[in-house]
C-alpha cells in the first residue's frame, strides 16, 4: 500500500466500507508509517467531531402539523381529480344538469297530489271521497280501506295525535274535525301517506305539530332502505326547503336521510347544502349525500362536497365533515 492510498482507505474504513483485506493492509501500513498514523488520527478525530453535532428531532408539533398537511394534500388531490372539466364539456354538463333538474321536477310534480301549487295539495286519491263523519262523540278506528278522506277542501284538523306502529306496522293518526277521527294504517298505504303529507305540509301550524308528524314518519322509515311515498317525500322536501324553523328543517332532513336516497332527495339535499342557513341542517345534508355517493358517486355530489370542504366561509364542522366524507368516497 502506498501512502497516497491511505486517506482513501482510511475514509472507507471510517464509513464502514472497507473490506477485511483493505483493513488488514491499512493496519499493516500504519504500523510502519508514522506520518500515515498521524493522518489517520486526524481523520478519526474529524469523524468524531462531526458526530458530536446533535441530531434534529421530530417534535410533536412538527409531527402534528405534517400529518395535517398530508391529510390536506390528499384532499386537494381528490379535489383536483374531480376538476377535470374542460370548457368544451361544461356547456354539455350544464345542459344535462338542467334536463336532470327538469326531469326531477316533473317526477316530483307527478308524485304530488296536485301540481297546481308548489306545496303539496291534499287530494283524496283518484275518486273523491268524503271524510267519514261518524256519529257524534264516537271515535272511529278503522282500516284505511274503509276510511274515506277528502283533503281537497283543506279541512282543519285539530288535536292531532299519533300512535306508534303496532305489531302489524300500522300507525294511528287521531284528529278532530267535527268529531274525533282515528285513522289506522301503514304509512306506505296511499291514504295514510297522503294524510301524513297533508298534516305535515298544510295542517301543522306550529313547530311542535310539524315535528310530531315528522317523527312519526322517521320512526317508521328509519331503516335507511325504505322507499317513502312521493307525497311524504314532497312534503318533507318542501319543509326542508321552506320552513322558517331550523329545528323543523333539521327533523325533515333527518327524516329524508332515513329514506333510500332517490334522485329527488339528492337534489333537495344538494340545495340544502348550498343554501340552508343552519349548519346542523347542512351537516345532515353532507352525511346523506356522502352515504348516497358511497353507493353511487355522482359528479354533482362530489363537486358540492368539494366546494364545502375548501370553502373558508363555511362552518368548520361542515367543512371537516365534507372533507372526511370525500375521503370515504372511492371515486
Amino acid at each position: 500500500m502506498d501512502c497516497r492510498d491511505v486517506k482513501t482507505i482510511a475514509l472507507d474504513r471510517l464509513a464502514g466500507e472497507a473490506d477485511e483485506a483493505s483493513r488488514r493492509e491499512l493496519s499493516a501500513h500504519l504500523a510502519g508509517c508514522e506520518n500515515c498514523r498521524r493522518e489517520m488520527g486526524r481523520l478519526e478525530d474529524l469523524w468524531t467531531v462531526l458526530g458530536t453535532d446533535p441530531d434534529a428531532t421530530v417534535t410533536p408539533e412538527f409531527r402534528e402539523r405534517s400529518l395535517e398537511l398530508i391529510e390536506e394534500e390528499f384532499l386537494r388531490r381528490r379535489v383536483r381529480e374531480f376538476r377535470p372539466r374542460t370548457r368544451s364539456v361544461r356547456p354539455f354538463l350544464q345542459a344535462a344538469a338542467m334536463l336532470a333538474a327538469g326531469a326531477v321536477g316533473y317526477l316530483i310534480a307527478r308524485g304530488l297530489p296536485s301540481s297546481s301549487t308548489a306545496s303539496p295539495t291534499p287530494v283524496a286519491g283518484s275518486a273523491p271521497r268524503a271524510i267519514a263523519t261518524p256519529s257524534a262523540g264516537v271515535a272511529r278506528a278503522s282500516n284505511t280501506g274503509s276510511v274515506v278522506l277528502d283533503l281537497a277542501s283543506s279541512p282543519r284538523f285539530s288535536n292531532v295525535s299519533y300512535r306508534p306502529a303496532d305489531p302489524d306496522g300500522r300507525v294511528g293518526i287521531e284528529f278532530d274535525v267535527t268529531t274525533r277521527q282515528t285513522v289506522v294504517g301503514r304509512p306506505e298505504e296511499p291514504e295514510v301517506a297522503r294524510l301524513l303529507a297533508y298534516l305535515l305540509s298544510r295542517n301543522a301550524e306550529t313547530a311542535g305539530e310539524k315535528s310530531r308528524a315528522i317523527a312519526l314518519v322517521s320512526e317508521h322509515y328509519g331503516t335507511g332502505s325504505a322507499t317513502a311515498s312521493p307525497e311524504i317525500v314532497a312534503a318533507l322536501s318542501a319543509t326542508l326547503r321552506k320552513d322558517p324553523n331550523p329545528g323543523v328543517r333539521k327533523k325533515a332532513a333527518d327524516a329524508l336521510a332515513s329514506f333510500a336516497i332517490t334522485p329527488e332527495i339528492r337534489t333537495v339535499f344538494l340545495a340544502a347544502l348550498v343554501s340552508d342557513k343552519n349548519p346542523a341542517v347542512r351537516l345532515v345534508a353532507v352525511d346523506a349525500l356522502a352515504a348516497a355517493a358511497k353507493q353511487s358517486p355522482d359528479a354533482a355530489t362530489i363537486a358540492s362536497l368539494r366546494e364545502k370542504a375548501v370553502d373558508p366561509q363555511e362552518n368548520g364542522f361542515v367543512r371537516a365533515k365534507a372533507a372526511s366524507a370525500l375521503k370515504a368516497i372511492s371515486f
Binding site: I70, F74, K327
Partner: peptide
C-alpha cells in the same frame, strides 16, 4: 391508492431521518 394512513406511516418511518 389515496390511503392517508399509508402516508402517515411513511412519515413516522422516515421523517426523523429526513429531518436530520
Amino acid at each position: 391508492r389515496g390511503d392517508t394512513g399509508g402516508a402517515g406511516e411513511l412519515f413516522e418511518r422516515y421523517a426523523p431521518a429526513l429531518l436530520r
